[in-house]
Design a binder for these strands. Structure first.
Length: 260
DNA sequence: ATGGCTGCTTTGAGCAGA
């Protein structure tokens, strides 16, 4: 099973690129974030024509997540679109079970700045997410958590650690959340393999950040032990950040071998 | 080599993203 995650920064704007990328990358399951479209307007026909069934939880303007599942896979069941016990208007979660695999798609809040209300909201959201993942892990041996985490887990995930030290996306409380999720028995699939230094998943649109490779690795796929044991690769598709009208995020793609 | 923000909003300056 090939699982991918991509913050598309507006699905309506990115749809042509998505439809071009899907047959090339050929993920079995694609987790999207920042779709920025409400459910009635979701482009389900275009996605269906590309060979995928879409499940989604959207809103206009901000946020919004979707799960695209390739035709031929088991139909997603037990679809969940909220964190239990966390009242939230913002659409940042979709989870579903596909065969034996539970997929959780997160669009973690950005947090804006460490002294802001949005940062407090981020940490509260993450605390609820930790309990959700604990429960999901208890129910599902094969659990994948994919999405835009808006957390750069370590200094090696940051182009300029001194510049970013203590800033939002890199602050110690955010990194502690990431470690909490690993402590639930999840592996950062990217770090299961040797990786080129300075591999990132997001680059600011401004100041030539992409050509200068001034980025952060904030998009992740975490895998429970049975999936991690069968994981054969994790790559970030930098090419998807090039060219006309790219998202500011690149997709992360994970390959998992079938069970023996 | 990539390219010097982009996408959204009761339309147009301001917010949000990260």
């Amino acid at each position: 099973m090939k699982i991918a995650t991509w913050n598309v920064n507006s699905l309506p704007v990115r749809l042509p690129r998505l439809l071009a990328w899907l047959p090339v990358a050929a993920p079995d399951v694609l987790c999207l974030q920042e779709t920025k479209i409400d459910d009635p307007r979701f482009p389900r026909e275009e996605i269906a024509a590309a060979g995928y069934v879409a499940h989604f939880s959207g809103q206009r303007t901000y946020n919004g997540v979707a799960l695209l599942v390739k035709n031929g896979l088991p139909a997603p069941v037990d679809v969940v679109t909220a964190l239990p016990g966390f009242a939230d208007e913002q659409k940042r979660v979709i989870a579903a079970t596909i065969g034996a695999v539970r997929i959780v798609d997160f669009y973690v809040p950005n947090g804006q700045a460490v002294d802001s209300d949005k940062y407090a909201y981020k940490l509260g959201w993450c605390a609820a997410a930790t309990e959700f993942l604990r429960a999901e892990g208890a129910r599902h041996a094969e659990l994948a958590v994919a999405g835009d985490f808006n957390i750069a887990p370590e200094d090696r995930d940051v182009h300029d650690p001194a510049l970013w030290a203590g800033q939002v996306l890199c602050s110690e409380p955010e990194r502690a959340v990431f470690r909490d999720w690993l402590a639930l028995g999840l592996a950062d699939s990217f770090r299961l393999f040797p990786q080129p230094e300075k591999t990132f998943s997001w680059w600011d649109y401004r100041m030539l950040a992409f050509p200068k490779n001034r980025g952060l690795r904030i998009d992740h796929v975490l895998l429970s032990a049975p999936l991690a044991a069968r994981c054969t690769s994790c790559t970030i598709d930098r090419n998807a950040r090039k060219g006309e009208k790219p998202s500011d995020h690149a997709p992360v793609v994970v390959d998992i071998a079938d069970p023996a």
